[in-house]
């Protein structure tokens, strides 16, 4: 990435292309607590607004880099501890292996952001890295495979049990992803994605011996009331996502998404969550 930044510094300003991105989104999540027991499951919906300003640099005929910043906020209808504002920066390097839209691409991207929640337990920095190989097969269809890694630093949360930390939202994990997109018509594009991530997850549940044994950090989680506690667990999450996106113009789209996340953890504490969303996005 240092190499990319070095190349960016050597590019004349006139070669940079400013990209403005703005989005408003509605999301419904039927298992915000990521709990396995029905009595612990909490659902809610949220509105978010976000914006980004990025500079795209064509470094060579086949290489480009994008550098920029983004910010946004999300507010929940019931669980205001999840209300969050964020600000961050990202950088991406893209290489096309040849000429034309069917040329395969390699994308390497990194992001850093600070998320401030109403509930301090979740507040902290997040970092992500991603490497992606993709190819467009024709004007309508493209596909990619990717590997990613994420870190989340949230050094809050008081230790409730001697010897067991309380920083439950200090998380890291990584995984792989495959995805494809198909333009059914000039306006309508459908995309699908499967990702599998191995790493830390957080489940907020009532106290129990099994989850206590499986966890490596525990903290009170007042966002969901006094009876539920947040447990950091080690698990594997498989995510299936579908998105239908309607192009309103060359610069705007309205998209409807659905994803199902299935997380497997020790002690049979598996959980599922289903997320629906509607997003209006503008890019120029």
């Amino acid at each position: 990435m240092a190499c990319v930044l070095g190349m960016l510094a050597g590019i004349a300003p006139v070669s940079a292309e400013a990209l403005i991105d703005a989005a408003v989104n509605w999301t419904y999540d039927d298992n915000l607590t990521r709990a396995s027991s029905h009595s612990d499951i909490r659902a809610d919906n949220a509105f978010s607004a976000s914006g980004a300003l990025r500079w795209f640099h064509a470094l060579t005929e086949y290489d480009s880099a994008t550098l920029g910043g983004f910010a946004g906020g999300q507010a929940y209808a019931r669980y205001h501890g999840l209300d969050v504002a964020w600000i961050g920066a990202d950088v991406a390097y893209r290489h096309k292996e040849g000429l034309g839209y069917t040329a395969p691409w390699l994308l390497i991207a990194a992001t850093a952001a600070y998320h401030r929640y109403d509930d301090e337990l979740r507040t902290g920095a997040r970092y992500g890295a991603r490497a992606e190989l993709g190819k467009r097969f024709d004007e309508r269809f493209d596909a990619h495979v990717a590997a990613f890694y994420d870190w989340r630093f949230a050094p809050h949360g008081e230790s409730l049990v001697p010897g067991i930390p309380g920083d439950v939202f200090d998380l890291k994990g990584g995984g792989v992803e495959i995805g494809a997109a198909y333009a059914a018509t000039e306006q309508l594009a459908i995309s699908g994605r499967f990702a599998s991530r191995r790493g830390d997850v957080v489940s907020t549940t009532s106290q129990g011996y099994a989850i206590f044994q499986a966890s490596n950090a525990i903290a009170a989680d007042p966002t969901f009331g006094d009876e539920l506690y947040a447990y950091r667990l080690r698990g594997t999450t498989n995510v299936f996502s579908l998105l239908a996106s309607w192009a309103i113009s060359d610069h705007a789209s309205l998209s409807v998404g659905y994803s199902e996340e299935r997380t497997s953890v020790a002690q049979g504490l598996d959980y599922r969550s289903h997320i629906a969303s509607v997003t209006f996005q503008y890019q120029h």
């Binding site: 790493g199 957080v202 996502s241 610069h251 705007a252 996340e261």
Partner: peptide, 12 residues
């Protein structure tokens, strides 16, 4: 396609 498509993230 030129129009934007959201990149869907996940919460863990």
């Amino acid at each position: 396609r030129r129009a934007p498509m959201p990149e869907r993230g996940t919460r863990y």
